[in-house]
Simulated assay, not measured.
Amino acid sequence: MLTCCCRPVELVHQYGNLSTGACKPGYAAAKMAAIFPKFVKPAPMFLDRNFKRLAKVNNYLPPFGLKAQDKIIDTILAATKAYGLSPELDRLSCKRCIIVGNGGILANKSLGSHIDEYDIVVRLNQAPVSGYIRDVGTKTTMRITYPEGAIQKKDHYEKDSLFVFLAFKPIDFKWLKYMIFKEKWQGTEGFWKSVAKDVPKEPSEMRILNPYFIQEAAFQFIGLPLNNGLMGKGNIPTLGTVAITMALHNCDEVAVAGFGYDMNTPHAPLHYYETVKMSAIKESWTHNISKEKEFLQKLVKANVITDLTKGI
């Protein structure tokens, strides 16, 4: 029952009669529009063959857009031939989604079975499932990543998940094309660390995330510097926040787990799957962690998203 006085009256009327646990259609978007009046839900999750019509992304270079990338994206999309989640998920009239972050706060919370109850489970970069099932669950609908963040060991890929690609720079699209056409990628020039040389996924299991979510998260929601629409100091949202933004447009309810860094506990684990400590975080050149935290706290406070690990 939505009876909290802080929720808009119309939401109480709309969702108050639903049975406990029932998916609430349009809930996240309605709550989002209450704190960001310009928020409009329709924004495709992945690029399809009509991507040139997406005016908001065609004026910017990667990572905020697709400028000058038409030809290579056409080639990639012609090979993948699939642009949705899956027929089963695309048919759902109400989608409950969870973004699983990589934070150490996930450890020993035993949230795995709860995470698996969501319709769509989104994971990020190389965060492992095997060996951590009790805390992170078994289900992976999609794994959002970029060349430097992609899993490098072929046997660590889940069988039934989508490989969802996010481009930060033009060369990233070239890398994706190599992965799709199973061509050998040599060297690391143009990347800030080594990249996967092979992605054991069929082209039909690969997607390109709509870069509008990076643009909107950075400039509309967090308020990062535009920098003439180019990647610069402190104006790139973290992958987790980009994933949340995507979910707000494409899911009816949005939850998160494993988000939040507590800098007051320097000896706490940074990630749930390794021993690196919180103190290893240095001031990031690309992200503005404090401004991003303010945005995420705003979402939690307004009940736009549910934070299962309460780290935000």
Rank of each mutant, 00 (worst) to 15 (best):
V304G: 02
S204M: 14
N102G: 02
S93D: 13
K233D: 10
Y157P: 12
D70I: 12
H271M: 04
T140Q: 03
Y132L: 05
T3D: 08
H271L: 14
P237F: 05
C6D: 15
I120N: 09
D119F: 15
N59K: 15
I208H: 00
I115P: 02
L77I: 11
G103I: 00
T309F: 12
K310T: 11
N235W: 08
R96D: 05
I73Y: 02
H114R: 04
D74N: 07
T20I: 02
P203H: 08
T141D: 06
C4A: 14
I73R: 03
L308I: 10
Y60R: 08
I35M: 10
V242G: 03
S130A: 12
A22L: 13
N210I: 01
I144F: 13
E253Q: 12
I236G: 04
N264T: 15
V304I: 05
Y15Q: 07
I281R: 14
G260P: 03
K193F: 11
A243H: 01
L224W: 07
M278Q: 03
W175N: 06
E189S: 14
T141P: 06
V300Q: 11
A255R: 06
C23P: 11
G26Q: 09
I98A: 01
L54Y: 11
I244Q: 00
K301D: 15
F39S: 03
P269A: 04
M263S: 12
T75G: 07
V57N: 10
Q126R: 08
A28L: 03
K154M: 15
F163A: 13
K182L: 12
T245Q: 06
S130F: 14
L2E: 14
L2W: 02
R91F: 06
R123E: 05
V164P: 04
A243W: 01
K291G: 13
K282Q: 13
G16D: 07
I281G: 07
Y178S: 03
Q14W: 07
T306R: 06
L224A: 03
N210T: 01
P8C: 10
N108A: 05
I305E: 01
I99F: 07
G260M: 08
A22I: 06
V129S: 12
L296M: 15
S113I: 14
E216K: 06
G137L: 02
A68M: 14
K310A: 12
N108L: 12
